[in-house]
């Protein structure tokens, strides 16, 4: 008897509850939503602000990491260096260069070597009082005396465009392998000896030619370089 009565009562109770809960639900889900929408807007704005703040913090953290790396690099190199920021890229598609925010006022002169912790970047092409243009390793006008680190094979690094360089005048009989590191020889007087230029990524030996075709991939990502060092004096 009791369970039967209970089920009848519960049906009744459910009907009453549904009847009364309807306006409450209408209020809560539709009328009250106006307030929720306002809150939603505020929260969305807060999210946007926090996202922006997060981006700023991430940027500062990355800058901090980068600067720390630069500082360590500067400590380890026993030469007089000037830190500079990249402020512009080449105006044309035909040449590979970028501008830095340091110039004659800081003692920068034409021909000086430009480095970053990853390796050689290029050399100063022209300088103004507080502005200089750096000719990159990958430009066709660039040339640097270099060595293959493993075998001490000497050659001249020249830019060939497309993000690569070539090690010229390497005799066909020389033992040069893929993956060998190419470093600056220091003979031309501006680049410190041992500065990393890049890694050998392609080799071609032609029977008709006395020299091998050695293609190097520079270690520096020129598109992502933001800070560089100019070597002022190798004598220190």
């Amino acid at each position: 008897m009791e369970p039967g009565a209970f089920s009848v009562v519960s049906y009744f109770q459910e009907t009453i509850n549904t009847f009364f809960s309807f306006p409450v639900r209408v209020w809560g889900r539709y009328v009250f939503l106006i307030e929720t929408e306002k809150k939603n807007q505020i929260l969305n704005q807060e999210i946007k602000m926090l996202r922006q703040e997060n981006a700023f913090l991430q940027e500062s953290a990355l800058a901090n990491q980068r600067l720390r790396k630069l500082l360590e690099f500067k400590k380890n190199i026993p030469y007089k260096l000037v830190a500079a920021e990249v402020v512009g890229v080449d105006a044309s598609l035909s040449f590979e260069s970028f501008s830095i925010n340091k110039g004659r006022n800081e003692g920068i002169k034409k021909g000086m070597a430009v480095l970053c912790p990853d390796g050689a970047v290029g050399r100063i092409l022209k300088e103004a009082d507080s502005f200089s243009v750096v000719l990159l390793l990958i430009d066709q006008g660039f040339a640097l005396d270099a060595l293959v680190q493993r075998t001490r094979t000497q050659g001249v690094v020249e830019g060939i465009g497309g993000g690569f360089c070539q090690l010229k005048y390497v005799l066909g009989s020389e033992d040069v392998r893929l993956g060998d590191w190419v470093i600056a020889s220091g003979l031309e007087g501006f680049f410190p000896k041992g500065t990393i230029v890049g890694k050998i990524v392609s080799l071609k030996k032609d029977k008709l030619s006395a020299f091998q075709e050695v293609i190097i991939q520079p270690m520096v990502n020129f598109k992502k370089t933001e800070e560089v060092f100019v070597v002022l004096d190798l004598a220190l």
Partner: peptide, 8 residues
């Protein structure tokens, strides 16, 4: 200006 801002 192009000459000034390029490495050519």
């Amino acid at each position: 200006l192009m000459d000034l801002f390029s490495g050519g």
